[in-house]
Amino acid sequence: MRFGGARPFRLRVVPVSGFLRPRQLAFCGGLFVAVFVALCWHVSVGEYGIPLPDVARALLGSGDPGTLLVVQELRLPRAVVGLLAGIAFGMSGALFQTMTRNPLASPDMIGLTQGAGTAVVGGIVLGWDFGLGTQALGLLGAFAGAVVVYGLAWRRGTTGYRIILVGIGVSWMCLSATDFLLARGGRFQAQAALGWLVGNLNGRDWQQAAPLAAALAVLVPATLLIGRLMRTLLLGDDVAQGLGTRVQAVRLAVLLTGVGLVAFATAAAGPVAFVALAAPQIAQRLCRTAWPPPLAAGLTGALVVLASDVVARELIPGTELPVGIVTGVLGAPVLLWLLIRVNRAGSGG
């Protein structure tokens, strides 16, 4: 419509989803390099030290037989499990924080890792593994926790706020059940369960790395696709629906993808604490975006896990600490900082 020769007014809607910005591309490129360097560093450090150039040659399949054996068979599987688990935890945290529009929402907080822990401890202490291994029990426990959270949060649809509140309640229920099982079990059973519960890469081999790699080959592209679709949720459910987004369908897809990521990562490496909480927030601030970017969050998570595992191995000579202890020490200040920021913003309740 024209008024007195004026140009017609057109409402232009700029899509929330889009391609990576130059800053995100540069940051992700730098992270790829940093993760590769951290992987080589992780493999080179140990009782039998290997120079970084020899590690790079061994990764390409050349070098003396002794170095090839140490790198490819003894150290590389552990590093690969840590790298893949960090990617999965970081991306799952980015999905949940974006879906709920809350920086405190992560699998650690809404009962998913706790559900996996309860299932694994129950299988170890009670012997109710039904022939399944730790990985299968962790997968079943995480998915069971997600079903309970989603079912209790459903009331003619779900909201991020209800998912967080219900998830916190389910998380504490699972923690109580786990403590009861540990108290009931024997000393050796409790030690085996605790070694897994804190998040541990000790003794990991290709049997844990292969299923996790296969799962991420499907879940990572799905996460990147869903991440573009879900950004309209940042505008609120009503606005998202007005823009044509099927809010409940997208939210369910986010939940299933995020649960898949955290379930396979937890099954392989245990519930490594705070990576899913801290990595998306670090990536968001470095990329200067309004939401945690999933790819950058995944690479940040991989970098955090690899570096933390090196610290866990070398901090006390002769003792290999579980990686979850180091990430917990580093992640606790991040959680306190987020709580302070949310409270100052007036959204902390």
Rank of each mutant, 00 (worst) to 15 (best):
F32P: 00
P77C: 07
W206P: 03
F264P: 00
V259H: 03
F9K: 12
V304N: 00
A279M: 08
S44A: 15
A142T: 03
A192Y: 01
A332G: 13
W206Q: 08
I50A: 04
L126S: 10
Q24N: 12
P107D: 03
L20E: 15
A183Q: 14
S176L: 12
N102I: 08
Q24I: 11
E73D: 14
G30T: 09
W337A: 15
E320R: 10
L140C: 06
A209L: 07
W206V: 10
Q135Y: 15
R246F: 05
V43D: 00
A276P: 05
A312F: 04
V250K: 05
R75D: 04
Q241E: 15
R288T: 12
G349M: 14
L74N: 07
G301M: 10
L152I: 12
L20T: 07
T245A: 15
G29A: 15
A79Y: 02
L60E: 09
M99S: 09
L243R: 06
L256V: 15
A79G: 13
A265W: 01
L306N: 07
A217P: 06
T113G: 08
G66E: 12
A302Q: 01
W196P: 01
G30S: 10
A119F: 11
D54N: 11
T223D: 02
R101C: 09
A215D: 02
P51N: 12
A85S: 15
A144P: 06
A119K: 02
L321H: 05
N343T: 14
Q281K: 11
I316Q: 07
T158N: 06
L286E: 04
R204D: 04
V218Q: 06
S106A: 15
A210V: 15
G318A: 12
S62A: 14
G151L: 14
A217Q: 07
P322W: 04
